[in-house]
């Protein structure tokens, strides 16, 4: 029961935050609601017993990426931009198509739930053996044993992004 209340709280906050990100006029307000949404997602991870991911989400997304976003918004903030039209010409078509996509995905989910070949085939959710070995240790073992090469590639990706960002930030390009 408590779990369910927490889930609905975080889920509602995440979705509401997401909707407000898209509809807000001022980019800083959007960023604040994106932070809300990301924090609520971190809460959802907690309800899934993924505490390491909860922390990674806050440190990297909220404490890293979003600071970058807010920083850039402040650098490029224009008062003029607030009075311009915020949505482009394809808004109605795009919105309709997106809702069609949502309806289709929801229908697919409903079908999968009702059919016998869908989710029922997967084993029922069980509590992972977090008590034996912490979630952090499990992920660490997995990352450094099974996924060493993807891990290293990810670090190279970050290096490339770092260099790219520095080049982009130079005075003249």
């Amino acid at each position: 029961m408590t779990n369910l209340i927490l889930f609905y709280f975080f889920a509602g906050l995440a979705v509401l935050g997401g909707v407000l990100v898209v509809t807000m006029r001022n980019a800083v307000h959007s960023a604040v609601f994106l932070i809300t949404s990301l924090l609520a997602t971190a809460g959802l991870y907690l309800t899934l017993n993924a505490e390491f991911l909860f922390v990674v989400q806050i440190i990297l997304y909220v404490g890293g990426i979003m600071v970058l976003f807010v920083f850039v918004i402040m650098l490029v903030n224009l008062d003029v931009a607030l009075h311009q039209v915020q949505f482009n010409r394809q808004t109605w078509v795009a919105g309709l198509l997106s809702f069609a996509l949502l309806a289709e995905l929801l229908a697919a989910l409903a079908l999968a739930r009702s059919s016998s070949t869908g989710m029922q085939l997967l084993p029922a959710p069980h509590v992972p053996a977090a008590s034996v070995q912490g979630n952090t240790e499990q992920i660490g073992t997995l990352l450094f044993q099974n996924y060493v090469i993807p891990f290293e590639i990810a670090s190279i990706l970050l290096l490339v992004a770092l260099v790219g960002a520095v080049v982009m930030g130079k005075k003249r390009i």
Partner: peptide
């Protein structure tokens, strides 16, 4: 225990919101 489908629905809603944002907004940062 919260069923997995609940999470999938939340994920779908967030995904669609994101898609709408990408397709309709003019501000690149958003």
């Amino acid at each position: 225990m919260i069923p997995t489908s609940h999470y999938v629905v939340v994920s779908l809603l967030l995904f669609t919101t994101g898609v709408i944002g990408v397709l309709t907004r003019r501000n690149v940062i958003i």
